[in-house]
Write a protein that binds this DNA or RNA. Structure first.
Lengths: 212, 212
DNA sequence: TAATGTGAAGCCTTTCACAGCA
DNA sequence: TGCTGTGAAAGGCTTCACATTA
């Protein structure tokens, strides 16, 4: 195997592979051939082999890939081989949904703090996490938290964003498209539900679209 | 202008352009040069000009692009020039957040129905929408709804998915990665919050990551 | 034999440079 | 002069074919 830069598109696919491999591993499977994995994920088998080939040789011709080895390697590449502590700001409906979402565990994430500015919510527990006063965000600096999830309303997004950057958060998952990421410091991934929905109609045959 | 197939990557960017242009239009701006729009969005100005050039000539050399014309054209391409009726299934925290999310309006979406199987929720209004009994999903067929949003727990995802396909929904935005899209009929966009978060650490310098 | 790993071809997207226009 | 629109070059990803290995 030679050293390659792993293409960004491949990195984007790794979490998908990881999820599938973890599930297979739970079912007790030890190996899986690429075409089989491809069927599960609805992609081509040569795509999968190519992707894996960028970071090593884990397969045995005639048998397939060693699931455990692959999981370990993908975790390492994605830096998911350590536990990441995350904070959530904005405990509304969306924030509560995120706090109670069970899917983070498999990737090694742990939400360790939640903030809101609503006195009715401060002090209450949501998903096992105590909601703290948003004006105390600066206490985060000592707590070695590297990730943040922003689920505040649009108006509060910029302020929250700036505050999080200030306390040294380096990765942000934001559900609000309403902030400028001016400082280039943290890596930001924005999820805009409406925008994702906006991509759908393009791919739908027009015949069924209701004219109004 | 010649006819081009619009590249998929360009289509993916159109909703982003649209959001920005709508905001500019609201502020009363009539035109904007590409480098200016590029600054807003953090992309290159030639990328924007290239993207726009695929579907027409809306710019005036020395002045910039006509915002209204551009909005109209992008809406047309994305098929957002008609009102799309959507249904939501699963009125938990996440579903409630989506129902009360104000961002859909600007793209011309209207959530017209919501379903759940929890008797405590059925009959209540969330975000102005009456929650109906999930076992009555089949009534959708007559209501000419083309889009659906799935916000049910993992276990119920497959069942919900199949039911929606059955009543003729052609586009699905799913927050649950737990269904096979076997039938190739509807276009499906899946949002997996944990997976998006899983992409973050890769881009973050390792130094700050808490070793555990 | 069955399946991996990879060089090379093909395809698509991004980037560039510049002609052309208001 | 300032900015658009676009052909062409550069770059990167996907697909393919096949040599290779357990």
């Amino acid at each position: 195997m030679k050293y390659h830069k792993i293409p960004d598109e491949t990195v984007q696919r790794l979490p998908i592979y990881l999820r599938c491999l973890l599930s297979l591993s739970e079912q007790g499977r030890k190996t899986i051939p690429s075409h089989n994995l491809a069927d599960f994920l609805g992609v081509n088998h040569w795509q999968i082999r190519k992707d894996f080939s960028y970071f090593g040789s884990f397969g045995t011709p005639g048998t397939g890939y060693n699931i455990e080895k692959l999981i370990k390697q993908i975790r390492k590449i994605l830096k998911l081989d350590v536990v990441h502590k995350a904070v959530l700001v904005g405990v509304g409906n969306l924030g509560s949904a995120v706090l109670t979402y069970p899917g983070f565990r498999i990737y090694g994430f742990k939400i360790v703090a939640a903030f809101d500015n609503d006195p009715k919510k401060i002090g209450r527990k949501v998903g096992g996490i105590m909601v703290e006063d948003a004006s105390n965000l600066q206490t985060l600096r000592k707590r070695k938290i590297d990730l943040a999830i922003i689920t505040v309303p649009c108006e509060a997004a910029q302020e929250t964003f700036d505050a999080l950057v200030k306390v040294g958060v380096t990765g942000i998952l934001s559900f609000s498209p309403c902030h400028k990421t001016g400082h280039k410091k943290p890596k930001v991934i924005t999820i805009d539900i409406a925008m994702d929905l906006a991509r759908l109609p393009y791919y739908i045959p027009t015949s069924r679209v209701a004219k109004v």
